[in-house]
Computed example of a mutant assay.
Amino acid sequence: MSLNTYQFDQVRVRNKLARIVILQEYPLSMVDHIGFKEFVVDLQPIFKLVTRNTLKSDILKIYDNEREKALKMMDKNESRMAITIDMCTSSNKKRGFMVITAHFINHTWTLQSRVLRFVYISSPHTKDVLAKVLVDCFLEWNIDRKLSTITFDNCSTNNVMIRLLLNKLDTSSLMLGGFMLHMRCAAHILNLIIQDGLSIIGDGIERIHDSMIYWTGSSKRRQKFEENARQLRVQCTKELVLDCKTRWNSIYLMLSTALIYKDVFSHLAKREISYTCLPYDYDWELAKDICGRLEFFHSETEFFSGL
């Protein structure tokens, strides 16, 4: 094997390694793991395994290359672009981030979507801060004159932010002078509607909620629940799930799972003295009725989220 061929293979394999880390979200430290090092040596002894710093550099090169390709593609694209904005909070340090995604149809009439920015937003998330981030992003990608709509959730801050954006953008380049720029997220509207309804019947499912908390409260209790489910030959492998106040469909998922294990709860109530929140028959009837009604909305939410 010639030196040039070897160098080419090194670069290609390093690129493949970096892409695996990106796709599978592996930690950079995996290249320091003894088992992984031994695997690489056995697989290809002539490959020189990189350090985590080099791996990080390779990943950033891939990002820069993909970003450059996306910039060129979007610059050539003549269609307008619909922007979706999503705010999220990291689970570890509770920091706020904004995800800005562009959606457009290319020259072959194929729908394309590209994440433009995933950016940390310092608190407080005021209208001025959010508007500046968006304008900077539009100018950076040279799409400020190609916008069709921007979809947000129904936070009141976003209403004011749109007015700030219109003052910063060239409204003559926008459809109807920017009258249709602000689109409200259909999934979020659906969420608000259902949350209003669930707030009325919240007390009726309290014992089911408490039962879920009890049997997911420790690994020992969860294990005991699973053992009793197997003893009763419940043909289901779903794990017990708790609801989340900010996600209405988590209530649907919690109730639909609890209904499957209804007999298990009753069985355990006879054996576990400290389990005192067994749902009554009318609690189960209410849960069944609620699930039947929420199933449609759950399907629609998944449909909206997949668009």
Rank of each mutant, 00 (worst) to 15 (best):
R117L: 08
V50L: 14
D32G: 04
H33V: 08
Y26A: 09
I85H: 04
I59E: 05
F138P: 00
N92A: 04
I85M: 12
H33Q: 10
S148Q: 09
L134V: 07
D136E: 07
H103Y: 09
L49S: 09
V99D: 10
V133W: 09
Y63T: 12
F36M: 08
K127H: 07
I150E: 00
V50Q: 13
Q24F: 10
C88H: 14
S113L: 04
A82L: 06
T149N: 05
V41I: 09
V115N: 10
V133F: 12
H125N: 01
D144L: 01
L111F: 13
W109P: 07
N53G: 03
H107W: 15
L147E: 00
E25I: 07
L71K: 14
G96R: 12
I100H: 07
K56T: 11
F97A: 11
I34A: 03
K76Y: 13
L23R: 11
L116P: 01
D136G: 01
I22A: 07
N92V: 01
H107I: 09
P27D: 08
P124L: 10
K61A: 09
F104E: 06
R52D: 05
S91V: 12
D58C: 10
K146P: 13
D42G: 11
T149D: 03
H107D: 13
M30C: 04
L147D: 00
A102G: 10
D58I: 04
S91I: 12
M81P: 13
V133A: 12
F118H: 11
Q112K: 05
E68N: 14
R145G: 02
L55R: 01
N92L: 01
L60G: 13
H103K: 05
G96D: 08
T151Q: 03
K48N: 11
I121G: 08
M98L: 15
T84H: 14
I85Y: 06
M98W: 07
Q24G: 11
L43D: 04
V31C: 05
N92D: 03
